[in-house]
Design a protein around this nucleic acid. Structure first.
Length: 481
RNA sequence: CGGGGUGUAGCGCAGCUUGGUAGCGCAUCUGAUUUGGGAUCAGAGGGUCGCGGGUUCAAAUCCUGCCGCCCCGACCA
C-alpha cells in the first residue's frame, strides 16, 4: 500500500518541487480546463464551469439585493468609441483584438473585441440618461472579454476570460464612492464566505490603478507559494468617462450635470486563486460552499444485502437537505480507487457506508481538508453532514489565514526585504512615501509591486521603508500573478 | 518580444547515435471473478511518428525550411 501511495503522488508534481507544474497537473488531471486549439484560450470543462456557476449564483444574488439589474452589451466596439477616453485607450490598446473584415469586405472602421465595456456602455448611457430622477443607474453584465496576452496560464491569465462588469452612474461623488466600496465589500464577502480565502482590501497606487479611474480598490489574496493574486477590483471612475462620452442629465437645480461613474469586476481568475490557496499534493481541496460536489458517498462491499439501499437512502436525505451529493456505485472501480479520485478532485467530505457501519448505525466520514476519518451517526445524518461542511469551511479559512499571516512580514531592512522577495516572497508590510519613483525602484529591485494601501492602516513608523523619505501610507508589497 | 524545453496511440514515454513493414506502461472496450485506500485473469480496438521539401531501393531515424505547444522573464485582471 505504501508503494501504491507513492505511485499516486507521482502523478501530480509536488508543490515543493515545482509549484507551476503542480498547478498545471492539478487543473488538467481534475478536468477543470483543457487547452484549446487557439493559444491562450482555454476550454472550461464541466467541473470547472460548475465552480463558476456557483460563484455567479452567489454574486448575482448579492447584486440584485443591492438594487442592480443585469443587461447585455455587444462584443464589438468601434475604434472611435474606444479612443474617446485617452488614459483608457492607452492602457488597453496594446492588448486588444481587432475585427477588420466582414466576410470578404474590409470594414470602413475597425471594431475591437471588448477588453472591458466602459466605452460602449457609456456611449449608450449618454443616449438614455435625461434626468436626475433616473439616477442611480445600477447595472451589471455577465460576459467574456478578450485581452491579447503575451503569456497565458489557465484561469490566472487567459486571452479570453469570463467575468462580470458592473457599471453604475450616480448624482454625487460620495454616492459613487459608497457604491465602489459597497461592491468591493461584496467581493470580499464572496471570497471569505464562499471561497474561504482571506483577503486584504485597500486602494491601488496611481501606478497600479485602472486606466481611466479616479481610484481603484482591490481585494488581494496570498497564494500558497507566497505570490499575491489580485482577485477583484472596484473603480471610482469619477467623471472621466461621463465627460468623454458626454453623459449629461438635467439636475435638481435645472443645470446640465455630468454623473459620477463606477465599474467593478471579478473573473474566472478566482478559480485559479482557490486552487492555489487551498490545494495540496493530492490535488484540489474545494471549499464546501463553492464545490460542485460537496459530498461523495462510496458504498463498501456494495453487493452485500442492504448496502446500496442504505447508500441511496443517505443520498436522498442529503438531496432533501439541499446538499450537492454524488453516489458512486460503479463496480468497475475499487473503493480505494474512488477514494483517491475524489480526493484529487477535492470533494470536501466523503461518506463511506458498508455492512459494518450499517450494523453500528453509522457511516465513516472522511474530511478532505484534514484527511481525518471518523464515524458519523446516521441519526440526524443530513444535519450532521451540513454541520461538518460548515466546520470544514471555517477550518479552511483559518488555515489559509494562518498561512498568509505566517508569510506576512514587516519591512525593517531593505536588503532583507529584497532577499526575502527573491526567496520565499510573501506579503511585505511597510510605510511608503507615495512617490512613483520609489515604487518603480521597488519593482526594479525585486519584481514585487505595491498590491494596495489597505483600509486597515497600521502605524509602522514615519519614514518610507523603501527610500527613507517621510511616509504617507502603509502598504502591502508582493510579487503578483 | 527575449531565454529554455518539447512534438511518436487518449495520457506518459522508448525507438533516432548505426535507415530496413512502429513498440511499452497507463487508460479504453468485451467477459468472468472481485470490492473497508488506486483488484485479478483472458481477449480486443486504437498511429498520415507536428507539417513541407530533400537524400535514398528504403526515412520516426539523415539534411533542410516552417509550425505548434509548455515553462521562465518583460507587459497585464
Amino acid at each position: 500500500m505504501a508503494k501504491k501511495e507513492m505511485e499516486f503522488v507521482k502523478e501530480i508534481t509536488r508543490m515543493e518541487d515545482d509549484f507551476a507544474q503542480w498547478y498545471t497537473d492539478v487543473i488538467l488531471k481534475t478536468e477543470l480546463v483543457d487547452y484549446s486549439p487557439v493559444k491562450g484560450f482555454m476550454v472550461i470543462r464541466p467541473y470547472g464551469y460548475e465552480i463558476w456557476e456557483n460563484i455567479q449564483a452567489f454574486l448575482d444574488k448579492r447584486f440584485k439585493e443591492t438594487g442592480h439589474k443585469n443587461m447585455y452589451f455587444p462584443l464589438l466596439i468601434p475604434e472611435s468609441l474606444l479612443n474617446r477616453e485617452k488614459e483608457h485607450v492607452e492602457g488597453f490598446a496594446p492588448e486588444v483584438a481587432w475585427v477588420t473584415h466582414g466576410g470578404k469586405e474590409e470594414l470602413a472602421e475597425r471594431l475591437c473585441v471588448r477588453p472591458t465595456s466602459e466605452t460602449i456602455i457609456c456611449s449608450m448611457y449618454s443616449k438614455w440618461l435625461q434626468s436626475y430622477r433616473e439616477l442611480p443607474y445600477l447595472y451589471n453584465q455577465w460576459c467574456s472579454v478578450v485581452r491579447w496576452e503575451k503569456s497565458t496560464r489557465p484561469f490566472l491569465r487567459t486571452s479570453e476570460f469570463l467575468w462580470q462588469e458592473g457599471h453604475t452612474l450616480h448624482e454625487t461623488y460620495e454616492e459613487a464612492q459608497d457604491e465602489t466600496i459597497q461592491m468591493l465589500n461584496i467581493y470580499r464577502q464572496m471570497a471569505e464566505e464562499l471561497l474561504a480565502i482571506p483577503m486584504v482590501s485597500g486602494r491601488k497606487s496611481e501606478k497600479e490603478k485602472f486606466a481611466g479611474a479616479y481610484a481603484t480598490y482591490t481585494i488581494e489574496a496570498l497564494m500558497h507559494d507566497g505570490k499575491a493574486l489580485q482577485s477583484g477590483t472596484s473603480h471610482n471612475l469619477g467623471q472621466h468617462f461621463t465627460k468623454a462620452f458626454e453623459i449629461q442629465y438635467l439636475g435638481r437645480g435645472g443645470e446640465l450635470e455630468f454623473p459620477f461613474h463606477t465599474s467593478w469586476g471579478v473573473s474566472t481568475r478566482l478559480i485559479g486563486g482557490l486552487i492555489m490557496v487551498h490545494g495540496d499534493n493530492r490535488g484540489l481541496v474545494m471549499p464546501p460552499r463553492v464545490a460542485p460536489t460537496q459530498v461523495v458517498i462510496i458504498p463498501i462491499a456494495q453487493n452485500k444485502p442492504g448496502v446500496l439501499d442504505k447508500a441511496y437512502e443517505l443520498k436522498a436525505a442529503l438531496v432533501e437537505r439541499g446538499i450537492r451529493v454524488e453516489l458512486n456505485d460503479d463496480t468497475n472501480y475499487t473503493p480505494g480507487w474512488k477514494f483517491n479520485e475524489y480526493e484529487m478532485k477535492g470533494v470536501p467530505l466523503r461518506i463511506e457506508i458498508g455492512p459494518r457501519d450499517i450494523q453500528n448505525n453509522q457511516a465513516m466520514a472522511a474530511r478532505r481538508d484534514t484527511l481525518e476519518k471518523a464515524p458519523m451517526s446516521l441519526d440526524g445524518f443530513a444535519d450532521n453532514v451540513a454541520g461538518m461542511l460548515d466546520t470544514i469551511h471555517n477550518a479552511m479559512f483559518e488555515k489559509a489565514k494562518k498561512h498568509r499571516d505566517s508569510m506576512t512580514f514587516v519591512v525593517d531592512d531593505y536588503e532583507e526585504f529584497k532577499n526575502r522577495m527573491a526567496t520565499t516572497a510573501g506579503f511585505a508590510k511597510g510605510m511608503w512615501c507615495g512617490e512613483r519613483e520609489c515604487e518603480d525602484k521597488i519593482k526594479a529591485d525585486t519584481a514585487a509591486t505595491i498590491r494596495c494601501m489597505p483600509f486597515e492602516q497600521e502605524d509602522l513608523g514615519s519614514v518610507c521603508h523603501f527610500c527613507g523619505k517621510p511616509a504617507k501610507h502603509m502598504v502591502y508589497v508582493a510579487k503578483a500573478y
